[in-house]
Amino acid sequence: MQDRNFDDLAAKFAAKIYASQKGAVRIAVIWRDLLECCAQRGVALQAENATSSPAQPLRVLELGGGLGQFSCRLAQLGHRVVYNDISAAMAEQAQQRAAAAGCLEAIQWRIGSYQQLVEAAHADAQQFDLVLCHAMIEWLAKPSQLVAQITPLLAPNGLLSLSYYNHHGWAYRNLMRGNFNLLSRPYQSHPGSLTPQHAFSFEQIVQWLHAAQLRVHRCSGIRVFSDYTREQRGGLQSAAATLEQELNYSLLEPYKWLGRYLHVVAERDPG
């Protein structure tokens, strides 16, 4: 098994995920979490005046940056952003997005494996106030190594934003669809599909975070109900209403634990 490179599926990924309600929910939940978690630490991710830059620009690293939505948004807000992805095709789309948004030159583009970037950052003693790693860990050949490798890149007061494919969400969806045969054997993805190579429990992710001396600051569910519905009726016919309810229930027990993905914001454990 190798780290997944999306050169062959970049167009399909863009169409099926980020051109759909799925992508809108993912971006909205993660952005809400980032805004609120940074604010709780006295850091303004965006200035009150939309036309001005934040008082203290953050050093941001996005690993597995994909189509570059977060890199572009953060660069537009005046933060110092380093984008990384192993896929040249994904990076090309991200650069097109950045060029259209007028922030192409404001982003440092690092195309290649995240391991190469981490090694170079270690050598240069680089640290970041915010490290983003969204929907990437489940595509790695050795996912257990990721958190330990990137934790030294976090500044003392830095935050790690990590989203991952939720094993409980995968199991629940297959229960809803009657795919009981899939639940009776170890998790397995299908080559050539957008089904990740791995699915993780929250307990497994927390174990890796604790081993790296990080603790969970917040955990939210991503797509806690809209992925499970087959009939678009009532409020489900409204994208805005669906997004509002996804945001509402993404933080509520027990619903958040059924999200197709979970978003964890972690910080250094002072203990």
Rank of each mutant, 00 (worst) to 15 (best):
L175I: 14
L247Y: 01
H198N: 13
G158K: 11
P186I: 03
R215H: 12
P254M: 00
P186S: 04
Q149T: 03
D227N: 13
L175P: 10
Q213A: 07
F202C: 03
L243D: 11
I137S: 09
L194Y: 02
Y165D: 08
R215S: 14
A141H: 14
L247D: 01
I205M: 01
L194G: 09
E246A: 05
S220D: 04
A211H: 06
H168T: 02
R218N: 08
S226H: 13
A171S: 12
Y249S: 10
S184E: 15
N181I: 08
M136G: 06
L209F: 03
P156F: 01
L262Y: 06
N157Q: 15
E246S: 05
S226A: 11
L153F: 13
L214F: 06
I150Y: 06
P191K: 05
N174Y: 11
A211D: 06
N166A: 03
V206D: 06
T229A: 14
I150P: 08
N174H: 15
S161L: 05
S144F: 10
P156V: 04
L252A: 14
H168Y: 02
F202A: 15
C219G: 09
Q149A: 09
R185E: 14
T195Y: 00
Y187H: 09
I222R: 05
L194R: 10
P254H: 02
N179P: 03
R185M: 11
L243H: 13
L183Q: 07
V216C: 14
P156G: 03
T151G: 02
L243R: 14
L182I: 01
H210Y: 07
Q149L: 05
S184N: 10
P196T: 10
H217G: 10
E138Y: 04
G178S: 07
E253K: 08
L243N: 11
K256V: 08
Q245K: 15
T195Q: 15
M136W: 08
A211P: 02
L236E: 12
V216K: 03
R173N: 15
L214D: 08
N157D: 15
L162N: 01
H217N: 11
L194F: 02
Y261T: 00
H198G: 10
G235Q: 09
I222C: 09
A211Q: 00
P254V: 01
A240V: 04
F225K: 08
G235I: 10
L194V: 01
